[in-house]
Computed example of a mutant assay.
Amino acid sequence: MATDVLKSRYWGIAARGLAMGAADVVPGVSGGTIAFITGIYQELLDSLSRIGPQSVKTLFGEGVVAAWRQVNGNFLLALFGGILVSVFSLAKLIGYLLQHYPIVVWGFFFGLILASVFPIVRRVPRWSWRCWLALLTGVLMAILVSEMRPTEIAATPYTLFFSGALAICAMILPGISGSFILLMIGIYPQVIKAVHEIQVAALGWFAGGAICGLLLFSRLLSWLMHRFPSVTLSFLVGILLGSLKIVWPWKLSVDTLPGADHDKLAPALSNVMPDEFAHVSGEPSFVLGAAGAALLAFLLVLLIEWVHGRNVSNISHRS
Score class of each variant (00 low, 15 high):
Val29Asp: 06
Ala260Met: 04
Lys245Cys: 11
Leu182Pro: 09
Ile34Lys: 05
Val64Trp: 13
Gly21Asp: 00
Tyr101Thr: 05
Val301Tyr: 09
Thr256His: 02
Leu59Thr: 11
Val195Leu: 14
Glu276Pro: 01
Gly107Tyr: 01
Lys92Phe: 03
Leu299Cys: 13
Val247Glu: 03
Trp11Gln: 06
Gly309Ser: 09
Leu84Ala: 11
Ser49Leu: 12
Thr137Ser: 15
Tyr10Trp: 13
Phe110Gln: 03
Ala2Trp: 07
Thr256Arg: 03
Ser218Ala: 15
Asp4Val: 13
Val139Leu: 10
Ile304Lys: 08
Ala155Gln: 04
Ala67Tyr: 08
Leu98Cys: 05
Thr58Ala: 14
Asp255Thr: 12
Val29Met: 04
Ser222Cys: 13
Phe217Gly: 11
Arg123Cys: 04
Trp127Gly: 07
Phe80Pro: 02
Val25Tyr: 01
Leu135Asp: 06
Trp306Thr: 15
Tyr158Lys: 06
Leu77Cys: 14
Arg9Phe: 00
Ser8Ala: 10
Val191Met: 10
Phe36Val: 02
Glu62Arg: 14
Ser319Pro: 01
Met184Cys: 02
Val191Lys: 07
Leu183Glu: 02
Thr137Lys: 08
Met20Tyr: 04
Leu288Val: 03
Ala19Trp: 04
Ser243Lys: 06
His317Phe: 00
Val87Tyr: 08
His317Asn: 10
Lys245Thr: 12
Arg318Val: 01
Val64Ile: 12
Leu265Trp: 01
Ile113Phe: 08
Ile94Glu: 00
Ser319His: 13
Tyr101Arg: 09
Ala207Gly: 09
Ser128Lys: 09
Ala15Ser: 08
Phe118Gly: 05
Ala19Val: 09
Pro125His: 05
Leu133Ile: 12
Gly82Ala: 01
Val280Ile: 12
Pro150Phe: 04
Ala23Arg: 00
Arg122Thr: 11
His262Gly: 04
Arg219Gly: 15
Val29Pro: 04
Leu265Asn: 08
Thr3Ile: 09
Val29Leu: 05
Ala19Met: 12
Ser243Met: 00
Arg149Trp: 04
Ala278Thr: 02
Ile181Cys: 01
Met184Gln: 12
Val247Ser: 01
Val272Pro: 03
Ile198Thr: 08
